[in-house]
Every structure is written in C-alpha cells, then in structure tokens.
Design a protein around this nucleic acid. Structure first.
Lengths: 241, 241
DNA sequence: TCCCTATTTTAGGCAAGACTAATTTGTTTC
DNA sequence: GAAACAAATTAGTCTTGCCTAAAATAGGGA
C-alpha cells in the first residue's frame, strides 16, 4: 500500500489522464473490467493490467484483481478536470475557431492534456460560463459538479411525443453534420408526428439512406423523416404530456 | 546510414521537436556542440549524445561525432513549423486570450507540439496573417521563410540616434512587463536624448532599479530613463541618419 | 611532442507504456 | 465435481528519453 504521495503540481501524463477518463466513462457503480478498459483505450489487456497497477499505487484508482478498477476521489477529480477541459475546448473550437465536427474531437482529445488552468478559466469566461458542449454533454464545473444527462433516445419515442434534444452521440462526425442540417441540435424542441405528413420524395430519399425512419417536426420547421440509426444517436428529455 | 523513412503523417514527439528547435536556435553556420545543446535543453550531455544519434538515423540532423549537430532540410522544416506554432500561439494567447507575459511562454511551449495544421491555419487567419509575435520575433511562413531580425541593442546606441524597436529578449517576463509600461514594444519609434532632459526624481528611481541608465524618448511620449540591463534586452533597427 | 583538461562518448540503469505469448483464475455448464 | 472457455495476469521484450559514472578523445599549451 505504498500510495506514493507526489508533488501536487506534477502534471499527469496524457496516458494517465486517458485511463482515468475511460474508467470514469465506463464505471456505473461497478468496477470496470480490464477488457472493457482495453477496448475503450484500444490497447492490449495486458497493458491495462500493468498500468492499472501503477494507478492504484498512486492512489488514483482502486483495483481488485480479476474484478476491475474504480476511481478514488482523487481519480474522479482528475477525470472530471480532463473532461471539463475537453468539453470547453470542443465548444471553443466550434464556436470561435470554426473547426468542423470532424476536427473537433481529435483536437480536443490532444489539447485537453496540455492547457493550463489559466487557459481553462479564460475559455470559461470567453464562452460565458457554458454548461454544455456542442454535443450537449454537460461541462463539469471547476468543483466537479455534473449536470444531468438525457437517457431517452429519439428513436424510442411514440407518435405525438414532445421532447427537447439533450445530447448527441459523438461517435460519427458525418452524422453530426447531418443532424445539424436537420436542426436536431441540443436544446431544440421537437414533436414526433405522423409519417403521412411527409412528402413522398423526401421519404424515398431518407429511406434509402437510413431504414425505418421516424417522422419528426423540429420547432419552427416542417416535418421531416429521420432514419432510425440517426434517431438512435439523439438523446432527448421527454416533455411531460 | 539506415535513414529510416517513416509515415509522413507520424507526429514527432515533443522531445524530438524541442531538440530540433534548440539546434535551429543555436546553429549559426557551424554545428551545435553537444554541451551547448545540453545547456539549452537543460539535460545531461550524455542524454544529448543518445538522442542526436537517433535524430541522425531519422535523417533530421547530421551528426559529426565530437563536433556537433546540424539540421538537415527535413529537420529545418520541422523546427520552423514548431517555431511558427509557438509564435502564432504567443500572439494569440496575448491578443485573444489575455495571458500575461508570464503565462505566454510556458503555455505556448506546451501547446506548440499539439495543435493541428488546421488550428495553425485558423490562428493565422484570425490574427490576420501576422508576421511578428508579441516579442517582435518573426513568425516563419508556412513555407518556411523568416523575416530579418534586429541585431543592434538599445543599450549600444548614442545620443541622438533614432531607431525602431525590433524585438525584445523573452527571457524575463517581469522585464517585459516593465518594457510594456515604458512603451518599448516592437514597432515603437524612439530617439536617444540627453540625460539632462529627465527629471531628477525619475532619475533616482530608475537608477536604483537598474544602474547606468540611458535616456530615451519614445515617439509621442516624454523622455525617460531606461536602465542598461533593460536596454540590453531591447533590439532595434537603427534609422539611417 | 606530450600532457592536461574540457568535452564527448560509452556503458549500464531506470521508468513509462506499449506489445506478444504463456499461464492462471473464475465462471459456467454438463 | 470436472471440463471448457473467457478473462486476467505474469513473464519477458521493446522503444523513448532520461540519468550517473567511467572511459575515450581532441586540442591547446609547455
């Protein structure tokens, strides 16, 4: 239980921060198994065993052999700081620098490990203390509080349901491009309508691209068809009806 | 002469980039000796020997044992790209983010290794294709051209000389703070005046801080005394008289 | 020319982080 | 309860970049 205490000023390696971020993402109460972590980080399981041992020694995670890893308070703090950096950067790069969806993630993924606290604070100010990144993910506060996240998928709504877009899956940049054109951005109000209201031409076009579409009217716009695949990457807050 | 050719897309390590930058800075025609490089990078000479061997194998430098290292064309290209990143970032952090002189260098030193070409291009655009960083150092173009740099020090001027500030030594943030207050920023026109024109009170104050002051009038301002130490960190273009 | 000294290189080590291959453990199933 | 299988760990390697201590070398001065 060496639990080496180190300089508080010491910068953690990008790799270390990536592990903590990944554990934060994957843990939902239970410890994160080695294989899951290896999958998320796209490295070999044996490498994860080695690294998690070191992280445990440093007091950033707790490790139960053959079970998995859990963040300690110190580890959670680091993970949230990195996520805060990432999301502030994404918003900034989108709003101020004009990066595409494609470039956003990659750039933020690198820079999140290297900006100073002063830079973080200035971004926060410049962006007027935002609470969500461009995908709608909550930006943790400096003190580590995180807003609630939508869990319902647009694909699972029923005719007549009203909802507000919460966040979007950030896996696929092309899909985000498409969602932006559809107006399905975080904060947008929408209503699921009857399929009949949509013109046939649109239906054919959409159906070719993404099977089994759902008909949606975004506030202030015309009804449109949205493919199931697409609708599954849109997470919404269902309005009380 | 293995000269391993690698993926053109492969990102070089921060350490590699720092070596190339340091060699670029220190080489003036002749090869850079191991000890000089070790001093610049603040590491042991033996470490430099090891690393320069690897850089030579990769075709980024040429190495003559017991003589020193010289950049190849490929190495020069990398060095200039990194310097371009650094200087664009410094200007950006100063102008848009509002970093202090103190924070500037450190932040740019880290980020220069991690921004994308797209980011670099956007900074260049946002800043309206600048040619100088906040210290007055020339920003290399994408294609690797570098503007001329002033070589004359303010401290070495004579009474009556007129000059334009070229660049400032970036070693000491506090000094830069002071220079900014004096109006001695890159681009400023100035004239070296007689010492008598300066009030006695000012003289005493300045003399205590920095010995053997020089009297300077910055265009549009009053004559003031500038310590020799300070004046030695100001590089100027002497106006033809 | 020979020696002295500063510089450089070699030798040997260490930590981080990755890998593959081989082994161990836990779990499930018959 | 034993066999089978998946997951995890161990063992052993590799590269990068740094270190110290010891040996080699180059170049100037007597």
């Amino acid at each position: 239980m060496a639990q080496t205490i180190q300089e508080p000023s010491a910068r953690l390696s990008p790799s270390t921060e990536d592990y903590l971020k990944a554990i934060y993402k994957l843990e939902e109460g239970d410890p994160v198994p080695t294989k899951a972590l290896a999958g998320e980080l796209e490295i070999a399981a044996a490498s994860v065993t080695g690294m998690t041992k070191r992280l445990a020694e440093r007091g950033l995670i707790e490790r139960e052999p053959y079970k998995g890893a859990t963040l300690t308070d110190a580890g959670t703090k680091v993970a949230l700081e990195v996520i805060r950096h990432h999301r502030l950067l994404e918003l900034y790069l989108k709003e101020e620098i004009g990066h595409s969806w494609e470039e956003l993630h990659e750039e933020a993924e690198r820079l999140e490990h290297h900006i100073s606290e002063a830079f973080e604070d200035r971004l926060d100010e410049l962006l007027d203390h935002p609470t969500r990144d461009p995908h709608g993910h909550p930006i943790p506060t400096r003190s580590g509080e995180v807003e609630e996240t939508a869990t319902q998928r647009l694909a699972d709504l029923e005719d007549g349901d009203r909802a507000v877009v919460g966040h979007l899956s950030d896996k696929n940049p092309a899909l985000l491009e498409h969602l932006e054109e559809c107006g399905l951005m975080p904060g947008a109000s929408l209503e699921v309508t009857e399929a009949q209201e949509v013109t046939e031409a649109q239906e054919v076009a959409e159906a070719q691209a993404f099977e089994e579409p759902i008909a949606v009217r975004v506030e202030g716009g015309e009804p449109q068809l949205v493919g199931r695949v697409v609708a599954r990457s849109v997470f919404v807050f269902l309005a009380a009806s």
